[in-house]
Design a protein around this nucleic acid. Structure first.
Length: 111
DNA sequence: CTACTGACCGCGA
DNA sequence: GTCGCGGCCAGTA
């Protein structure tokens, strides 16, 4: 098993419920800055038996990576909503649900 | 070995 | 909102 993949999986597993993260953020947290694509590759062939919260990973702009209307797309939308994440038109407001939402609130004074 | 692909990203037009 | 472009680099043929 590739050590990089393990770190990526670990980073994904660390996303708290009700929160989402971008591929780039995961890459950075896995010690692989700038390798967002690798996260995509790792996620693509992830055995779903690991109970990995793959659905909490989105594009940097908050859109769902899978093609609209696809099986995975619906599944992801469904699971996110089940956690209370606001999914509108295939997109999640990162400012409110992203990993750095807390930091953002602190910096921008939002709430 | 080269060539192409891609669950990506940020920037500029 | 939509391209296009360059950067990234592991997989695959």
């Amino acid at each position: 098993m590739d050590k990089r993949y393990q770190r990526i999986y670990a980073a994904i597993a660390a996303i708290p419920a009700g929160r989402v993260a971008s591929y780039g953020q995961i890459a950075a947290r896995a010690g692989l800055p700038g390798r967002a694509r690798l996260v995509g590759t790792a996620l693509r062939d992830t055995p779903d038996g690991l109970g990995l919260p793959w659905f909490r990973v989105l594009h940097a702009d908050g859109t769902i990576a899978l093609p609209r209307g696809s099986r995975g797309f619906r599944e992801q939308t469904k699971r996110l909503r089940a956690e209370g994440v606001d999914v509108r038109n295939g997109r999640v407001p990162m400012a409110a649900f992203g990993l750095d939402a807390d930091l953002d609130r602190a910096l921008w004074g939002l709430n």
